[in-house]
């Protein structure tokens, strides 16, 4: 556990450095925050990547994920449920979701 904590501490330091200097904190997703937000998504979209009327959203590259969600947010892509969900998400929210879902590998087709 102590090793894990040290790695965590290093992670915090890198996060703060990059956050304050390079990206002003909003251009990269926060995986932990994305994991929290993802609990809304996984009511419908399965973490295994299984799809049956609801498309899989795990294992995407972060740029594609952002683009699709942003298109829903602008109502340029059809699906009322997704437009409504996306309307409540900030850029940082979407990037955090993208960062989290990118860490999940499909285990089922």
């Amino acid at each position: 556990m102590i090793e894990t904590r040290c790695i965590s501490l290093a992670g915090v330091a890198i996060y703060l450095f990059l956050g304050t200097h390079a990206w002003a904190g909003d251009n990269e997703g926060d995986v932990a925050f994305g994991e929290y937000l993802s609990s809304q998504c996984v009511t419908c979209h399965q973490l295994s990547g299984a799809s049956n009327g609801i498309p899989p959203i795990v294992g995407w590259d972060t740029t594609s994920f952002y683009q699709v969600m942003d298109t829903y947010r602008q109502k340029a892509r059809e699906n009322k449920a997704m437009q409504t969900i996306a309307a409540g998400l900030s850029d940082h929210d979407i990037k955090s979701l993208a960062a989290y879902f990118a860490t999940i590998e499909t285990t089922e087709n």
Partner: peptide
């Protein structure tokens, strides 16, 4: 979509 939702939830 509802069928997919049932599986997911």
């Amino acid at each position: 979509e509802s069928v997919g939702w049932y599986d997911g939830i």
